[in-house]
């Protein structure tokens, strides 16, 4: 459904993405991993149209995504979360989720019912009316997820949803992501491989802007190129 071919990005002398191909079918969890600076977030930013690649194509459901404005993506069925949550800090948690639904032009009452349902499903019912900026980091990440999920997108892009989340909040988040991936495609960047690797259908490993391995988790785990480039020393061993 989502097909990136030969996506190349250049910033001055840097090449954060160098001919990356990626295919994401209609359902399931797809993982993009790699060391810091491998180009993961840049890839997500290309798909969500925050940046425009120097070369390559990005197609989604037979549409050319690169021809769309960032604000047209949600209507096209693509929602995303952010590494730093990027919540609307002055709005309540409920209003944040409502913003994620507003492009649908539902009647206000129906929208509220649905947004509150979404918050409750993620265990956020109690903080619906609290200003998002005052929530704990973990709650902010949950609200960010709720905001992206509430419009029921066909493709959900998640940028390190577990980063900075406390251990107590992780099961809720993981369950929500797993549920989300049953009905849609979820493309996720995550460093906590020990928690998410086995949930993924397929994994793409990036390093220095190139795909160095691609396949089901168990195959990628054994790929010598991955072990050499990404896993390196013993320090990372336990992460698998």
């Amino acid at each position: 459904m989502l097909r990136c071919s030969g996506v190349t990005m250049r910033f001055g002398g840097l090449v954060p993405l160098d001919g990356v191909d990626l295919h994401v079918p209609e359902r399931g969890l797809f993982l993009v991993v790699g060391p810091n600076g491998a180009g993961k977030t840049t890839l997500l930013n290309v798909i969500s149209r925050l940046v425009t690649p120097a070369a390559g194509s990005v197609r989604f459901a037979d549409r050319d995504l690169l021809a769309l404005e960032p604000s047209a993506l949600l209507d096209a069925g693509i929602a995303r979360s952010f590494q730093k949550a990027e919540l609307f800090v002055g709005l309540s948690a409920l209003d944040n989720v409502l913003v994620g639904l507003d492009h649908r032009h539902l009647p206000e009452r129906a929208a509220r019912v649905r947004a509150i349902g979404m918050l409750e499903a993620l265990g956020l019912g109690g903080v619906a009316h609290v200003a998002a900026g005052t929530l704990s980091h973990g709650y902010q990440k949950l609200v960010d997820l709720a905001r992206a999920l509430v419009s029921e997108p066909k493709l959900l892009l998640l940028d390190e949803p577990l980063a900075g989340v406390t251990a107590a909040e992780i099961p809720t988040l993981l369950a929500a992501i797993r549920d989300a991936a049953r009905e849609r495609a979820v493309l996720m960047i995550e460093h906590h491989l020990e928690l998410v690797l086995d949930l993924a259908e397929r994994v793409t490993v990036l390093d220095f802007g190139r795909t160095i391995s691609e396949g089901p988790p168990e195959a990628v785990r054994r790929d010598p190129a991955v072990i050499r480039s990404y896993l390196g020393g013993k320090a990372v061993e336990h992460a698998w």
């Binding site: 925050l50 929602a79 952010f82 990027e86 919540l87 609307f88 507003d102 900026g133 905001r147």
Partner: peptide, 13 residues
């Protein structure tokens, strides 16, 4: 006001 990037991602011009 709070995040132009997230606002655009939510379909707001």
């Amino acid at each position: 006001r709070d995040s132009e990037i997230a606002a655009a991602a939510m379909g707001i011009s």
